[in-house]
Computed example of a mutant assay.
Amino acid sequence: MNSEYAPVVITTLNRLDHFKACLESLEKCTLADKTDVYVALDYPPSDKYRAGWSKLSKYLHKKETSHLFKKLIVVRRERNYGIKFPNSNSRAIVADVQLNYDRYIFSEDDNVFSPNFLVFLNKGLEKFKDDDRISFICGYNYPMEFPKSFKNNFYISKHASPWGYATWFSKEEHIKKYYNLDFLKQLLKDKGSFNKLMKYKTSTVYSIINMIKNNIVYGDSARGSYICLEDKFCVFPKISKVKNIGTDGTGVNSKSKNNKLLDYNLNQLVDASESFEFTNDIFTNEPEMLIRHTPPKPLVKETYKKLIGKIDLFLFRHFNFVPKSKYI
């Protein structure tokens, strides 16, 4: 098992401009020349994706012959794997990587990285590998204001971010049951689990309802449920190592363009340093006085979503019925 430098896994389909920015920012990272990169190019589910998919495939053929990584391995799907767990494009490539590594870094194709992104995640993986409390090392962090007394360059949180994260396969084994929709349904029916999720992960509760509606498992919501209910934590950098450029209406989870949200993400300041050293405090909890600047959300739409979500949650928990209304 290779455990010195974690491989990077990137999933993609047809967004050439996003993917190009993602991969080429990764090439500029410290440790890129020591890193194996796996790209899982899914097959187009319909003709509307084919033109973009073809351009991306041609770009990858060129990059396979000239790149700055230790290795660039491109897996081209012969059929559409999609995003549905547990047989999605992402889970399939992660399963392949597991054959040769004990850890990995995951990103979708719409993230761009700071020069020290790989350094932060690799050092985090090594530093916390024997700490059972830590499940993920997250590269992205919201713009934040920390109290003056907070001197460390990282912190521990029950929040999680899917925008460029790292984990260990040994620890991920414990999460697998959360990728099962029947198991997630039971969490909402169980009083103790439901109350804990509502207290600490309210948005995840409504996400589970949406998963039940669509018969699909969202990996980030499943992992969020696990972190909350199993009392686990994520490691975050004080300054983000990732910028997300995909909230422009082109992605699976971003089907309509929100200019305020897009501006928020594109204008976010990220770390420009090429190196990173963890400060001394090994278990630095999220500061109580921390101010988290979250992205703007349309008030009317969010109010409507919450109302429908509450109705759907009530109907499911008390009558085992979920309407097919769509609010996300």
Rank of each mutant, 00 (worst) to 15 (best):
Y226W: 03
N14G: 06
F69S: 03
N210P: 03
A222Y: 00
K28E: 12
V322F: 12
L184K: 10
E78G: 10
S240E: 08
E64L: 15
D47M: 08
P115H: 03
L261V: 10
Q186P: 00
P296I: 01
L23A: 11
P86Y: 07
D263P: 05
P143R: 09
N100L: 06
V97Y: 09
E173M: 14
E27T: 05
P323Y: 03
Y59F: 15
N180D: 15
N265H: 15
L72M: 06
T30I: 02
K306T: 08
K310Q: 10
V235I: 15
L269K: 14
K48F: 12
E78I: 14
Y104P: 01
L125C: 05
I328M: 05
A222C: 11
M211S: 11
D263L: 11
A160D: 00
C228I: 11
L307C: 11
T12C: 15
V112P: 02
Y226V: 01
R91S: 15
I137F: 06
T202Q: 11
T167K: 02
E27H: 09
K257W: 08
F316H: 08
I308E: 02
K34H: 12
M198F: 13
V75W: 13
I208G: 07
E78F: 10
T303I: 13
G224P: 04
A6Y: 04
I282S: 06
E64W: 11
E78P: 04
A160M: 15
F136W: 01
K123Y: 05
L68D: 11
Y327K: 06
A272Q: 15
K189M: 10
